[in-house]
């Protein structure tokens, strides 16, 4: 049985995220979920886009692809399409995942390739200076909405569920044990699984909108989630089951 440390590049720690950022908690939960399932690191491909959370693959001892902004799921689709046996995990932020990458997200959910999308939502573009994203709530203060965000935020889980994903779940960085359990479930669900984790950005969104101090901000984001847990679950044949059935390929696909 592998320990969660076997999945982490410990020699690269401490990480580069800001003090009080929730990303480290999410990374720890992901490594523990890998460990719980005793996944072979050589068979895991972590795909990242651009953003603070897009740096997470630096700290993982798995295969990794660092793509372009918003395209993590599109890169992941190519990996999974070419090598269906690999465990493919796409790490995205809210800017990456549902703003610039929104089109890829809904189509990944519709297509139901067995990919796990882990979106850390800190309600703004943290890495690039705290601009508002598609998950910034109405009235939220950011560096590009100094008097409040005029747009409504996406309910990303509802969006992904409506698009047909096999499993959709939501929690926060305040609940790492639950996150670990949800990730275990996501990683073993056939079809597209999506986990949204509300997290803190003490440097920007938290400083502008939430209680002072990262610990209090963690409670704020936990409260914003409402009822954490499974949002939607449906029994689906994943993409390859349907693809091979239609094309009558059976097991001869892998070579």
């Amino acid at each position: 049985m592998r320990d969660f440390r076997d999945y982490l590049a410990l020699d690269r720690l401490p990480h580069m995220w800001c003090a009080g950022c929730g990303h480290g908690i999410v990374l720890g939960a992901l490594a523990r979920a890998f460990s719980d399932l005793d996944l072979d690191p050589s068979q895991i491909v972590v795909v990242t886009g651009i953003g603070c959370w897009g740096k997470a693959d630096d700290y993982l001892r798995t295969n990794a692809l660092h793509g372009t902004h918003g395209r993590a799921l599109a890169f992941a689709t190519g990996v999974k399409g070419a090598r269906p046996s690999l465990q493919v995990v796409a790490l995205m932020g809210d800017g990456d995942g549902v703003t610039i990458g929104g089109n890829h997200l809904i189509h990944a959910a519709r297509r139901n390739l067995s990919i796990t999308g882990l979106m850390v939502n800190n309600y703004n573009y943290g890495m690039t200076g705290g601009q508002y994203s598609a998950t910034t709530p109405y009235g939220g203060l950011t560096t590009t909405s100094r008097e409040g965000c005029p747009e409504e935020a996406f309910d990303t889980c509802a969006l992904v569920a409506a698009a047909g994903a096999a499993l959709v779940a939501r929690t926060s960085a305040y609940q790492p044990a639950q996150l670990r359990a949800l990730l275990r479930q996501a990683l073993t669900t056939p079809g597209f699984s999506f986990v949204e984790v509300a997290s803190t950005c003490p440097t920007y969104f938290g400083r502008f909108n939430q209680a002072p101090g990262p610990a209090e901000q963690l409670k704020d984001v936990a409260a914003s989630v409402g009822s954490p847990g499974i949002v939607a679950k449906r029994q689906v044949d994943d993409f390859h089951a349907r693809y091979w059935r239609i094309h009558g390929k059976g097991d001869e696909h892998e070579r």
Partner: peptide
């Protein structure tokens, strides 16, 4: 779903 998706998926596939 679009050309960005197609070409990004090409990146992932070629890398395998």
């Amino acid at each position: 779903e679009d050309e960005v998706g197609a070409f990004a998926a090409m990146s992932g596939a070629s890398r395998t």
